[in-house]
Design a protein around this nucleic acid. Structure first.
Length: 425
RNA sequence: GGAGAGGUAUCGAAGUGGUCAUAACGGGGCUGACUCGAAAUCAGUUUGGGAGCAAUCCCACAUGGGUUCAAAUCCCAUCCUCUCCGCCA
């Protein structure tokens, strides 16, 4: 949520920033309604002051035995006017709130404008593996080794679901263990979260109202209140301290949580994304930090380095892209993606997205902290990064670590959980 | 699912139409006094949002409606918490 004061003070600057995200906004109507609201508020506050004063007078006059019928008559009229004004103000509030709710987070100043085509590789690690045999697609490897059961996954859950089986399940679980072990040793608190969240969490994270159609909604009562399946643990973790006031001393909070992520991904399927590149449910460990504004860029570096270290620890070739403004998510001021090499696709696919929301999410879910020296309240900065999503790591492992005989070598760091060095048929 | 109790500041809690919402009373925090220092004691202080240069004013008692000149207080709906019973992993 953008601070409306920033729009009032310099609408052109905000407009320009949002244009970098390829969003064109016209603030004229917003500013008109805002002005109208302010004037009406002032007027109504004055009326309310009068009502309060007079109401306090009534019992006093009554005690003195004076007649108050005329005052009461007048106050009734005043009350009606106040009610009318309050209704109008509520209407204006709703307009303003809705308008601002839909606006994306303005990008950080150093980002390039525009979409994907302006993303910039800032780091690369490892090399594309060379094979002296014809490398296979991960779907073929996985099915051959009995690691993934696509057919029965679809039978149970429909298109976009699969089942991890045998060494596939062990490898998947090993990855999650590996991630969490690293985060714990870095001092992150590990959480297991509710998967079914209230709508306000979707709003607080910035996914709603704009992207409400991209998640699975659950009707849990006969009325119109619904919960939804979380599309990422971020949605839960960034709402953890909503409506709270944190101590500056306690910050930063460093959290990680494992959840499956449920996404509709309607219309996103492409033939090249055969397998587990894109599904309705995938496993992810998410990292989230709450920091003071002055420390958030530092925290961003930390999260990015952590995510990269995880991929690197697996020995997988990857690159890091600094996303151009319009390729950053709606709620984020800055995002870097870590993309792993998938030989069969001849391309890099995102395994981690590390973002700084600045105070955009904190404003939406009201998470503040108190400055130690001044006692003043400020919004925290929230950051998140996948650490990591497995759904592209597993294919990358299977493809990058495949052997001529169809077996897959287990990355060193995972062996203690998988219990073997090589997965064979 | 049934029955009951409840939701007021940092915590416990009083207030059940106006004269008690910064809000009684108690605890905690902070500041000061006493002390070599601490404890104890005493005194002071301690919510957030909005408008305004300021004085000051408005709003907020779970949430949303309603009644009233006036609502924490009365009415309706919703949410949440706790206790007991039932059901269930």
């Amino acid at each position: 949520m953008i601070d409306i004061n920033l729009i009032r003070e310099n609408p052109d600057l905000i407009k320009e920033k949002l244009a970098k995200k390829l969003v064109d906004v016209d603030f004229t109507e917003l500013l008109e309604k805002d002005k109208e609201r302010k004037d009406l508020m002032y007027k109504t506050d004055t009326l309310k002051a009068e009502r309060n004063k007079t109401s306090a007078l009534v019992p006093q006059l009554k005690k003195e035995g004076k007649d108050v019928t005329e005052i009461i008559e007048n106050m009734k009229k005043l009350g009606d006017e106040i009610k009318e004004n309050d209704d109008k103000i509520a209407e204006l509030d709703e307009f303003i709130y809705n308008f601002i709710s839909y606006l994306p987070n303005p990008p950080a100043d150093d980002l390039l404008a525009g979409g994907k085509e302006n993303n910039k590789e800032i780091k690369s690690w490892g090399e594309k593996p060379k094979f002296d045999f014809e490398p296979k697609h991960h779907v073929d490897i996985a099915e051959n080794l009995g690691m993934i059961d696509y057919k029965r996954g679809a039978k149970l859950g429909g298109n976009g679901f699969w089942i991890y089986r045998k060494d596939g399940a062990k490898l998947e679980w090993a990855l999650l263990n590996y991630f969490i072990e690293q985060h714990l040793s870095d001092g992150y608190e590990f959480m297991l979260l509710p998967h079914l969240l209230l709508k306000k969490c979707g709003f607080g994270a910035g996914q709603f109202p704009k992207f409400a159609d991209e998640v699975f909604h659950i009707d849990n009562t006969s009325d119109n209140s619904t919960s939804f399946l979380l599309p990422t643990a971020e949605t839960a973790l960034v709402n953890l301290h909503s409506d709270e006031i944190l101590d500056e001393d306690e910050l930063p909070f460093k959290y990680c949580g494992y959840t499956p992520c449920y996404r509709k991904e309607a219309g996103s399927y492409r033939a090249e994304e055969r397998g587990m590149i894109r599904g309705h449910q995938f496993n992810k460990v998410e990292m989230v930090q709450y920091t003071t504004p002055e420390n958030s860029e530092k925290a961003f570096e930390e999260l990015l380095n952590k995510a990269a270290a995880l991929v690197q620890g697996l020995g997988l070739h990857y690159r890091i892209s600094k996303l151009a403004a319009a390729d950053c998510s709606h709620s984020m001021a800055r995002t870097c993606d870590i993309e792993v090499w998938i030989p069969s696709m001849n391309d890099y696919k995102e395994v981690s997205s590390v973002s700084n929301a600045y105070d955009y999410q904190a404003r939406r879910n009201n998470t503040k902290f108190r400055r130690k020296d001044t006692g003043k309240l400020e919004y925290v900065h929230t950051l998140n990064g996948s650490g990591l999503a497995t759904s592209r790591i597993l294919p990358a492992i299977m493809e990058q670590y495949q052997n001529a005989d169809g077996s897959v070598t287990v990355p060193e760091v995972l062996r203690k959980w998988v219990g073997k060095d090589v997965i064979t048929k």
